[in-house]
Simulated assay, not measured.
Amino acid sequence: MAEPPYSRFDSERVFDLTPHHKSGGSSGDGGMEARIAKLEADLEHVKRDVTELRTDMRDVRDRAVKIEADIRHLPSKAFVFGVYGVVGAILAAIMLFQTQIQTLLGVTPSP
């Protein structure tokens, strides 16, 4: 039974680090020129992708700055809960003193 390929960090994903060129042959380079050309083409794609990522990250950073500026103008939690508390207290007082308010205004409750 053949040994499994070297496993980096003993993770489930195995990285095969064995060479993939054929041993022997007349050229001696094992297709090295073609492999290098493929690596160079892949590197150009990586460079293009990194440039796109940089552009995208600048856009994200600009949007985050705008969002931070917009958030500063929003009311705080303390203000919102304070307003709810005051409105709730006013409604509770109106319900509690409903008959006195009706008498003061000269409106009699209907039976």
Results as ranks from 00 to 15, higher is better:
V65R: 12
I67A: 13
A89F: 00
V86M: 10
V83N: 04
H73G: 15
I71L: 12
D59R: 09
A92L: 13
A93Q: 04
V60H: 10
I90P: 01
I71T: 06
G82S: 11
R61S: 14
S76T: 15
M57L: 11
V83G: 01
A78Y: 04
L74I: 12
P75C: 11
E68G: 07
D59G: 13
D62P: 01
F81A: 11
R63A: 15
F81H: 13
A92E: 05
R58P: 02
R63D: 12
L91M: 13
E68P: 00
M95S: 04
A89N: 04
R61C: 10
D62K: 08
K77N: 08
E68W: 06
R58C: 05
I71F: 07
R72E: 14
L74N: 10
R63M: 15
H73Y: 14
Y84Q: 14
F79L: 15
K66A: 07
V86K: 11
D70T: 07
D62V: 05
V60Y: 05
A89L: 03
F81V: 10
D62Y: 05
I67E: 07
L91I: 05
A78M: 13
V65K: 11
A78V: 14
G85P: 00
R58L: 11
I94F: 03
G88E: 08
G82N: 06
K66C: 02
D70Y: 10
A89P: 01
K77C: 02
A93T: 03
F81D: 13
F79N: 09
G88V: 01
I71Q: 05
V60R: 06
V60Q: 04
H73C: 14
L74C: 15
D70W: 07
V86S: 10
V60T: 12
V83Y: 05
A64K: 05
M95W: 00
A93M: 04
A89R: 03
R61P: 00
L74G: 09
V86Y: 06
E68I: 12
I71N: 05
K66H: 02
G82P: 01
E68M: 13
